[in-house]
Design a protein around this nucleic acid. Structure first.
Length: 154
DNA sequence: GCCAACGTTGGC
DNA sequence: GCCAACGTTGGC
């Protein structure tokens, strides 16, 4: 059992969009970074905890709690020439990009990035480090516990 | 819109 | 294998 923070742009898929999906589950398509892909491929298990993070928006922050709902499988968008995630080097036989399914556990009151920064318990979080761009990052169990028990319930 | 940080590409 | 150039991310 591991814990993750996964970024999504709410203009693309927001926490409310996730809540409206069948089974409140969505394929986490569009990851085109090898390190993030490898986290999904090598380290994620069904049931892992996910902090659903809104980025690239007016108030970035943690918008909900989710869970990993599948193992990694080929990301369909890499094969779609009309998709912005199309990858001409990927084939059905040798896909390059993978995704897991992510399922909503609960929407929470947004925990803004600016608030996360105020908690010394969280100062080592990857998301708070300067220059962080990775869209999927591991979260320490202690950080997960603090966020879910102390911040998400507030 | 700006800009710092980072990953990828491609020439050599 | 190095590294400059370029594109992207993402907070502000």
């Amino acid at each position: 059992m591991r814990y993750w923070l996964m970024k999504s742009e709410p203009d693309d898929v927001s926490i409310d969009d996730l809540a409206k999906m069948p089974k409140q589950s969505v394929a986490w398509y569009g990851v085109r970074n090898y390190q993030a892909r490898n986290f999904m491929r090598d380290q994620m298990s069904v049931g892992d905890g996910v902090l659903f993070y809104h980025s690239g928006c007016a108030i970035p922050g943690i918008a909900g709690i989710a869970r990993v709902a599948s193992v990694a499988y080929p990301d369909a968008t890499q094969f779609n020439s009309r998709s912005k995630y199309f990858d001409p080097k990927a084939t059905q036989e040798t896909p390059r990009w993978l995704n897991v399914d992510v399922q909503l556990v609960k929407k929470i009151n947004l925990i803004p990035l600016s608030e996360l920064r105020t908690h010394p318990q969280l100062e080592r979080m990857r998301i708070l480090q300067r220059g962080n761009r990775l869209s999927i990052t591991p979260v320490d169990p202690a950080e997960w516990q603090f966020i879910v028990a102390q911040l998400a319930s507030a």
